[in-house]
């Protein structure tokens, strides 16, 4: 019975961690789906969004009390999302769009450059000391049977589910979502069908960046905010996107959740030392690349000669 409780406990922890990875992975996968390029500055956009969210929250929190602080938190999250969306769109216009016809390596290097610029600017402006984002609620755990769940975890799960469902509806049902899918299938043909491809690309960056900011602000409650917070988180979310099948939105969701579960259960059940936790993602990456390089939900593309 004790082991059952333990299992559910790890499941809960794994799901929340995985949900966060999935939110970030969506940004990688959507951009890849349309531009066939990995936006390595994605993790740093997450970091900037988290800082903005933190500043806004600290600014308004003093004015409100108690139950209202959760509203203040959501408002801060919204501001962080909007800021990140604008940042993501600007980066695309400045650093990637001019390189769209260059070799495929060029925008990739540009992205790595932007990543360094953002994290160093953050360190310069805001210092390297990590800052705490206070819980907007009492985070003492609640118990379902013997399984404990913190309000923070409930918040993460709720936000992740809402974001994923809305994204899926957006991409499947709306005009812009359909234009996105057409653009990812064939950019030139989409243009000839009257689709404004440049705008579709901008919107893709905006959505991906906003999701990253959401994830950043959610984890900031636990791991604090600091200039290099996006690096490892971003890298692992990238692994999640590849494991799920890069380019596939459902794949990013599946890959993220799977990675979260594997990390949690790897430490808890397989006895992998906690310090080696970060290696789990990369071992999984190697295994997937060897066995099913296109990812769990990815489609194998045949190179035509």
């Amino acid at each position: 019975m004790g082991s059952m409780v333990e299992f559910f406990q790890h499941l809960m922890n794994g799901l929340t961690l995985g949900g966060i990875y999935a939110l970030i992975a969506l940004g990688y996968t959507m951009v890849y789906g349309i531009l066939k390029f990995i936006n390595f500055a994605h993790g740093d956009v997450l970091m900037v969004g988290s800082y903005i969210g933190l500043f806004v929250y600290n600014f308004i929190r003093g004015e409100v009390l108690g139950a209202w602080s959760i509203l203040a938190f959501f408002l801060s999250m919204l501001v962080g999302m909007v800021f990140s969306a604008l940042l993501g769109m600007t980066i695309e216009k400045v650093a990637y769009k001019p390189l769209r016809k260059a070799t495929r390596l060029a925008p990739l290097l540009s992205a790595i450059g932007i990543s360094f610029i953002l994290s160093n600017l953050a360190a310069w402006f805001w210092g390297t000391k990590s800052r705490k984002l206070e819980y907007p609620f009492d985070n003492s755990p609640l118990y379902i049977g013997e399984v404990s769940i913190t309000p923070h975890q409930i918040l993460i799960l709720a936000v992740v589910v809402v974001m994923m469902v809305s994204l899926k509806l957006f991409v499947d049902k709306t005009r812009i979502g359909k234009a996105m899918r057409a653009t990812s299938l064939d950019q030139d043909t989409a243009k000839l069908m009257g689709i404004r491809v440049d705008r579709v690309i901008s919107i893709t960056f905006a959505i991906g960046s906003a999701l990253a900011a959401t994830a950043g602000i959610l984890i900031a409650l636990e791991i604090k905010v600091y200039p290099s917070m996006g690096t490892m988180t971003g890298l692992k979310a990238f692994v999640a996107a590849v494991v799920g099948g890069i380019g596939s939105i459902s794949g990013a969701m599946v890959g993220g959740i799977l990675l979260g579960l594997l990390e949690t259960f790897g430490v808890a059940l397989l006895g992998i030392p906690y310090g080696l936790r970060d290696t789990i993602a990369f071992v999984v990456l190697i295994i997937i690349l060897l066995l099913k390089p296109e990812g769990i939900l990815g489609k194998a593309e045949k190179e035509k000669v």
Binding site: K191, G194, V197
Partner: peptide, 14 residues
């Protein structure tokens, strides 16, 4: 741009 020309009433195949 191609999308603008399409909207003006020119279409093509490949």
């Amino acid at each position: 741009s191609a999308h603008k020309i399409c909207r003006m009433g020119i279409a093509r195949t490949f």
